[in-house]
Structures are given as C-alpha cells and as structure tokens.
C-alpha cells in the first residue's frame, strides 16, 4: 500500500467529529427528536476517527495486517 487509508479516514473523522460536537456544545441548542444530535454524533465520529488512527499506528508498528500470502 502507498499509505494507510485509515490515516486520512481517521484524521477526517476526528476533525469533522470535533467540529460538529463542538458546535453542539457551544452553538444554540437544537434538539432533533429530543436529542442533541450534533453533540452525540459528532462525538461518535470523533471516537471512530481516533480508533482508525490507533489502528493505523498499530499497523505501522507491524502488529496488524499480515503480508499477502500468495
């Protein structure tokens, strides 16, 4: 692989997640179907991004992704 695709995915999700969750906290409170979806889903996206970055870091240290077998 040229680069680990989990790296851009992780960075983008972390950035979008923090942006949206931050707006959910600091912006005017809008509830959809009774929940602050900006905060909740922004948080979910940020956590997902962090997990992707962690996986990419683990892979770089050779602890994931066995080489192709044939």
């Amino acid at each position: 692989m040229l680069f680990d695709v989990r790296l851009p995915i992780g960075l983008l999700f972390l950035a979008i997640g923090l942006l949206v969750a931050g707006y959910g906290v600091l912006g005017p409170t809008t509830l959809s179907a009774g929940v602050n979806i900006d905060l909740i889903w922004g948080g979910v996206m940020a956590v997902f991004g962090a997990i992707m970055l962690a996986l990419a870091a683990l892979a770089k240290r050779g602890q994931l992704d066995p080489p192709p077998e044939d």
Partner: peptide, 9 residues
C-alpha cells in the same frame, strides 16, 4: 431532522 452541523455531515 438534521440541525446545523449535522446537515453538513
């Protein structure tokens, strides 16, 4: 159902 923020997503 998406407020500003989630609409972007």
């Amino acid at each position: 159902y998406f407020p500003i923020g989630m609409v972007g997503v």
